[in-house]
Design a protein around this nucleic acid. Sequence first.
DNA 1: TAAACTAATGATAATGATTATAAAGAAGTA
DNA 2: TACTTCTTTATAATCATTATCATTAGTTTA
Lengths: 147, 147
Amino acid sequence: MSEVILKDALVTLKESGVRITPQRHAILEYLISSEMHPTADEIYKALEGDFPNMSVATVYNNLRVFRNTGLVKELTYGDSSSRFDFVTHDHYHIICDHCGKIVDFHHPGLEEVEHLASHVTGFQVNSHRLEVYGTCPECAVSVQKAK
Amino acid sequence: MSEVILKDALVTLKESGVRITPQRHAILEYLISSEMHPTADEIYKALEGDFPNMSVATVYNNLRVFRNTGLVKELTYGDSSSRFDFVTHDHYHIICDHCGKIVDFHHPGLEEVEHLASHVTGFQVNSHRLEVYGTCPECAVSVQKAK
DNA sequence: TAAACTAATGATAATGATTATAAAGAAGTA
DNA sequence: TACTTCTTTATAATCATTATCATTAGTTTA
Ligand SMILES: [Mn+2]
Ligand SMILES: [Mn+2]
Ligand SMILES: [Zn+2]
Ligand SMILES: [Zn+2]
């Protein structure tokens, strides 16, 4: 299933004049298959078996290439390092305050909020960012036990 | 006007057993008077006239103290450094993609989104974060001219 | 095909925000 | 005053990310 997505991504890259290297192929494949919004370092570690000589700079460079091509979104939180999400359809994220897990969820876009914001501030609005925070079901269990 | 807010903040600190040092007083005062959501370094630079010997670590330490007391919110965006916002009433932010300016705006809380997110993910929801991005009126003018 | 050009990789150094450490100073307490 | 605790300051350490640059690989041109 993710085969098609990968193929499409490769086409997009080729159309943007970006060469498909084995490293790029592997990073993309990993991003598409992963549900966990990995950091650059996690990607690096996940691929070091197949690419023992790959530099961490290559991971960063290529994530930037993917971001500029619109294939990948960078998620930035307060904590240390960025996380990366392969772009399919629009979605929001809910994040566990305890374990840091990031889970996708869907919700109609908040155009109303964008309109109001534009109206009261005079900005031309391009986009918005929304995240919900809380306790994931797994962590809720642990918190129960701790009592 | 912000006098009252400062007084209240000092009371909150005292009640939390936090000593009021001249540096803390100055950082708080600066945060309250500033509309611009400054970074730690901007605060440091703004106060170096009055406190030539103050260490940048003191700024960071005290911002953390204020954050833990609930007086200050830390705003983390992708770009390098955190920004700090003195907490008064809840509000959202709209951010200019061109100049980085951060402007407050008010909008009813998005409880509906929190409920739906909780429902589809099984999380216990605590909070959410929303930012709107776009072009501020000033930058819109510059963009016009550039054409 | 060979030469020339261009892009990508990998090793390593640099950057920059933030945190840790430890000594010195100030305030609080008995 | 003696003792304890907190705070500041200077400085070093950390760590993610970016820059540099030589090497390699791919593409284009002659
Ligand atoms: Mn996602
Ligand atoms: Mn604000
Ligand atoms: Zn969790
Ligand atoms: Zn602007």
